[in-house]
Structures are given as C-alpha cells and as structure tokens.
Design a protein around this nucleic acid. Sequence first.
DNA 1: TACAGGATGCTT
DNA 2: AGCATCCTGTAA
Length: 196
Amino acid sequence: MDWLDLPASRVDEAARLLLGWRLSANRVTVRLTEVEAYSGLGADPASHAHRGVTERNRVMFGPAGRLYVYQIYGMHFCANVVCGETGRAAAVLLRAGAVVDGIEVARTRRPAARRDTDLAAGPAKLMQVLDLNRAANDTPLFGDGPATLTPPVEPAGEVSAGPRVGVTSAHDVPWRFWLTGDPTVSAYRRHTPRLR
DNA sequence: TACAGGATGCTT
DNA sequence: AGCATCCTGTAA
C-alpha cells in the first residue's frame, strides 16, 4: 500500500514508507533518511494540530501529497509531507536527507557544512539546501509545485525507530524513523535508543 | 565531542 | 512565553 492512501490514523506507517523517497527543488535532490510522524487529535499533544485548525496548521488538515511549511525560531523553515484523508490532520516532518544531485549548488547554499553528509542533516538545513521557504507552503508534491517527490530508486534498507526530537510530551511514542546507520543521521540517533 | 548562548519572529 | 532549529565559541 502506498503512503498516499493511508488514513491519518496510520501516519506512522506513512512516515516509514517515505524513507528513501527523493525530494527535488531548485536543482537539488535529496534522498530522505530521517522523518517524524505527527497526527492531529487528542492522541498527539506534540502535534501543531492537536488543538484543532488554526491559520498556521490548516494545511495539515488538507489532502495528502502537499507540503506543510512552518517557520521555527524566527528564522528557519521546516517542511512536512501532508498525509491522511482530507479533514484529518496528519503530516510527516522531513528531518534529514542525503544530497544525491546538485551537490555543488547545495554546498553554496550551506557554506557552514563541513562534510557533504551535513548538508541536509536537519529539518531546516534540508530546506536551505533545497532553497525552499514559506512560499512552498500548501503546494503539491506531484504536479506544478516548487518541489517534487519521486519514489525510491533502490530499496530503502533497514529502518530504525525512536522518540521524536524536541518534543517534551509523548516522548514514549517512537514516531521518528530513520535509515539505520545512515551518515546523514546524527550520531546519537544511529542506534535504536531505549524507550524509557 | 559537548554544551551554552544568541539570533529572530510567529503562534498561543 | 515558548518554539518539530542552527551556528559559533569555549572547554575538555
């Protein structure tokens, strides 16, 4: 089953399936290596959508296959792939990727990156590398939007799971997924953490 | 390698 | 006030 067809109640499975997909924008392509699932509704207080529709999060309630972009700490942007049926909030935060095309352009956009594996090793870094910002909010990933999502070229490999980053609540829910051992994933996430 | 602190603006 | 972050400096 394709992640596009999964209901919001299975956004964690959609997140898993998104690993290995390729996101292209502005002449750079990234292979997704780390993602996090977020759902709306009372079960997930860590989600932007858990208190219902607001001006910021309304895209999360829309149709699957579009981008939900938000600004964080006043200067960074992060992107989610909207999942689930229309009317139910679900999205997958794109936390990290490996630059597989346009690496020269990517380096000029992220001069602070010491190694190529650092270029998109973080949700806001990934956006910088792809040169995407709030203008990409609510745009389609399969069509005429600024960013395009394409299926994996090779099998995704082994997947690890653990608690989400930076969320103080729901720390017991292992809704972060990453490609096991991938160098673009931070060291402390490389091995399956114990779920305390 | 690890941690502390600053930059900066929108959301609640 | 707090935030689904990143970068730089300092210390070990």
